[in-house]
Amino acid sequence: MAHTATAPSPQGTTSHRRPTSGSGVNFARVLKSEWIKVTTVPSTMILLSITLVVMIGLSALFAWSMATSQASAESFTSSDPEIAAQLAATDYGEMALTAPSAGIIFGQLLIASLAVVLIASEWGTGMIRSTMVAVPKRIPALLAKNLIIAAIAFVVGAGAAFISYFVAQPLLAPEDIDFAITTDGVLLSIVNTGSVLALMAVIAMSIGALLRNTAGGVVTAIGLLMVLPIIVQIFSGLADWIPDAARFLPSSAGEAMVAVTTVEDGLTQWQGALVLGGWALVLLVLSLIVTKKRDV
């Protein structure tokens, strides 16, 4: 559209033609605006850098512990046959396949915090009023922000896992448990590290939009992702349905998505994706409805 033709005159106050259809709000423009907003606050770059470093660091640590465990398992073989048999059952080589995605545990917490901060700080600073005056239909603004944080989280998550793969190999190589990126399920696990972070970001941003408070949002998101699984673990002995239901927690679904081999009774990668996607979708729709209806 020829919106440049209707751009404000240099003086800005000499004339005012009626706005034309080409000069209005559309989703691509809102997306660009949200991109500018996300990339022009210092917390974004700080938290993303920390996420990247922590995720790669944890993967390296995990790979190193796999290698040392493998080494000690081999040294045990000759001395004590009983323990050796037990250790032989543990396949460190197979466990090492999840090394690229090992950083997800903390990565998801950091990304969730970033997502909460990005949305809740708009209410904290009053910025939300500017946002909603510019985009009074509200939903496009919130959707655009979710889309951008999801995209960033995906790139950071998948990127960190990809880099982690190459960091892990030299650590695993001395024990001959290094593996090719083409090994069954490895590439999917790397990609899904990004997918999990993207969905976690949407979940956290929706929580932030519902609570409109940075501290409350971060605590709630971390509670859902980290504390709730622990509580469920503690009470899992009380009833049979508790461990069953625990598989459907966001954190368990995320673990299933990045697993290379499916655990017994666990969800497959795709089932995990459906469960986590469901959480994200329900919370997103809820946050859109509430934000649309409530006063700003």
């Binding site: 919106h3 209005g24 423009r29 660009k32 510019a134």
Partner: peptide, 13 residues
């Protein structure tokens, strides 16, 4: 700049 972007208002403005 972020506010202007929602309406395609150029940076010159």
């Amino acid at each position: 700049r972020a506010m202007a972007a929602t309406h395609g208002i150029p940076n010159s403005r």
